[in-house]
Nucleic acid binder design. Structure first.
Length: 595
RNA sequence: GGGGUGGUAGUUCAGUUGGUUAGAACGCCGGCCUGUCACGCCGGAGGCCGCGGGUUCGAGUCCCGUCCACCCCGCCA
């Protein structure tokens, strides 16, 4: 039976007591972390967010001892007692409070607790579905407590930084307008307007641009965004963005704001990072790393080997080069530990999992001897020559692929990361940032047979590429940039179009008719015509940043109440059916499920 | 939509070529214990082997389907 709190007032948290408090009468409020019953002596660890304190029951007081023996894991208690110093032999160096303990004078059992489905008091791994169902218990454990506390401190540092730099935090609507393009919207039916829907924002994009038109100059918001797409370890249907927009900004203006911000964020975990961040064009990122979010930690850049094979006797590669294909490869400098069968296994794995067709390898052994999977076809001299040309020294190994340029780079990029991870080259304590810039403005959508915006339709083209838009729109570059850290895209943004006529041209390139544009973005196009300052911004993925800082491989570990890979909440069991009455009010009729 | 890994006690796992009564550790319950701190010692309870079907004399184990969790591809301006 639970007792009431009454006049019980906390004097210290469970992480607070020190030798200086010896003799004090204290009240601790918290959870029973662990019980050690020695018969005539009972130790109980009391836990709260701040720490753990040991309290002692002595059998001098039999009633009190009897009550203490009722305590079980996760009971909520109030303990009144006197602080005393522990003898030298009984100090617990693992606890901040380990030099002292409290001798209990009064115990209040504020609540009992069922036996938890998994131990809260230790870090033993538990399957994720159980953790998600009992999220409130998982959140009591140190891992998530620390992550959530870290997340708060990062958010606080962000707000402090932007406040100090003249940004205004302004809220934008959650109930907003559905727009074509981009991710699938979460829709909210309107009760008042039958058949009409709000959409939850994929990002506050148009609103923040309108705030610039409204003269707010510098805007920031830590906001929830919603995208109804399939999930990944780093993607949740609702996620948090640090959304930023600035008037009169060039890309350098944005870098100049974001780099010191990242410095402040990393200072939260005591890490110094170097600024400015290096910049790399999108084309280089694809060519050298096979990815638009390159992980720079392992080195092992992909090299263009076309010249080596243009005149080669190795016909397969020569033909590919002759037919506008590519031959590329990357070197693993320290590969002595790979056995022949292991290397063959890697090729098999790449064929199966990555769809590699023409993957070959060559290596120089520690003693200088050379071998290759195509030794016969190429000839030893040619192999040796190739290894020389690619700086494949003793003990190193090169993987080479040939074919269509983009897919070849992508394949090598994936393989590079798999092998780097295997060899422990993705060191979690290295933080390598880079800006990826000069994205293409548009990409060809083969399915819909039209151009689509690579970033979004409000992205400004490069000044130098404005004239390309009529003749060769596919090669126009955008004033867009991504911030990449250790192979993770942690932010992306662009300078926006501030000119209504240019915006209209973009829509027509995207095959969005004037009527369609008016219907979907009319309010915005009209706003553009009332004195829009040049402006641009960026959005940072807060969940991903905190995940990297806490060395977690999934953003679920830094979100208090995340969803599963099938976008459900195992704790609340959302989504769930609703009453027929609710549906009627919303003018919604359910269709029979197709079987 | 596609590919992969896993699902056995409350939890984490083991379970042989298909063969007796499905095990261990931790947790839980009871007992003993005055300096423990992952307390210790003794005893006990606890299982729809994810679910449904099939093969078989016999299925945790083999086959088919299905559900759930996780990872990846597609998708994510």
């Amino acid at each position: 039976m639970a007792e009431q709190l009454g006049e019980l007032t906390r004097t210290h948290t469970c992480g607070a007591l020190r030798p200086a408090d010896v003799g004090a009468n204290v009240v601790l409020l918290g959870w029973v972390h662990r019980v050690r019953d020695l018969g005539g002596l009972l130790f109980v660890d009391i836990r709260d967010r701040e720490g753990i304190t040991q309290v002692v029951f002595d059998k001098d007081d039999e009633t009190l001892m009897a009550k203490g023996k009722r305590l079980r894991s996760e009971y909520v208690v109030g303990v009144e007692g006197r602080v005393r110093r522990r003898s030298a032999e009984t100090v617990n160096p693992k606890l901040e409070t380990g030099e002292v303990e409290a001798l209990v004078r009064r115990l209040t059992i504020l609540n009992e607790a069922k036996t938890p489905p998994f131990p809260v008091a230790d870090e033993t791994p538990v399957s994720e579905d159980v953790r998600l169902k009992y999220r409130y218990l998982d959140l009591r454990r140190p891992r998530l407590q620390n992550n959530i506390i870290l997340r708060h401190r990062v958010s606080a540092a962000i707000r402090k930084y932007f406040d100090a730099n003249g940004f205004l935090e302004i809220e934008t609507p959650i109930l907003t307008k559905s727009t074509p393009e981009g991710a699938r919207d979460y829709l909210v039916p309107s009760r008042v307007h039958p058949g009409e829907f709000f959409a939850l924002p994929q990002s506050p994009q148009l609103f923040k641009q309108i705030l610039m038109i409204a003269g707010m100059d510098r805007y920031v918001q830590i906001c929830k965004c919603f995208r109804d797409e399939d999930l990944r370890a780093d993607r949740q249907p609702e996620f948090t963005q640090v959304d930023v927009e600035m008037s009169f900004a060039r890309p350098e203006t944005i870098y100049g704001v974001i780099e010191p911000l990242m410095r402040d964020i990393f200072a939260v975990v005591g890490r110094a990072i170097e600024t400015p961040f290096p910049r790399m064009s999108y084309a280089d990122a694809i060519a050298k790393y096979g990815s638009d979010k390159p992980d720079l930690r392992p080195g092992m850049e992909i090299q263009d080997l076309r010249e080596l094979f243009r005149e080669s006797s190795f016909r397969v590669f020569r033909d590919i080069v002759a037919n506008a294909g590519t031959v590329r490869g990357f070197v693993i400098p320290k590969a002595s530990h790979y056995s022949r069968s292991e290397v063959d296994g890697i090729v098999d794995m790449a064929k199966q999992q990555l769809g590699a067709t023409g993957l070959v390898w060559a290596r120089r052994m520690d003693d200088g001897a050379v071998t290759s999977s195509v030794m016969k076809a190429m000839g030893e001299d040619a192999v040796r020559q190739m290894l020389d040309a690619t700086s494949t020294g003793p003990g190193s190994l090169i993987f080479i692929a040939a074919g269509e340029p983009d897919s070849t780079s992508k394949l090598l990029g994936q393989l590079r990361l798999i092998l780097a991870k295997k060899d422990g080259l993705l060191r979690p304590d290295d933080y390598l940032f880079t800006w990826v810039v000069d994205f293409p403005l548009l990409e060809w959508d083969a399915e819909e047979k039209r151009y689509a915006s690579m970033h979004h339709p409000f992205t400004a083209p490069h000044d130098a590429d404005l004239d390309k838009m009529g003749i060769d729109p596919g090669h126009a570059r955008a004033k867009a940039y991504d911030l990449v850290l250790n192979g993770s895209e942690i932010g992306g943004g662009s300078i926006r179009i501030h000119d209504a006529s240019l915006q209209s041209r973009i829509f027509s390139l995207l095959n969005i008719s004037e009527e369609e544009a008016k219907l979907r973005f009319g309010f915005f196009l009209e706003a553009l015509e009332y004195g829009t300052p040049p402006h641009g911004g960026i959005a940072l993925g807060l969940d991903r940043i905190v995940a990297i800082l806490s060395n977690e491989s999934s953003i679920r570990e830094v979100i208090a109440f995340p969803k599963t890979a099938t976008a459900t909440d195992l704790m609340s069991d959302a989504p769930s059916p609703v009453d027929a009455k609710q549906l009627r009010e919303l003018h919604i009729q359910l269709r029979e499920q197709k079987s």
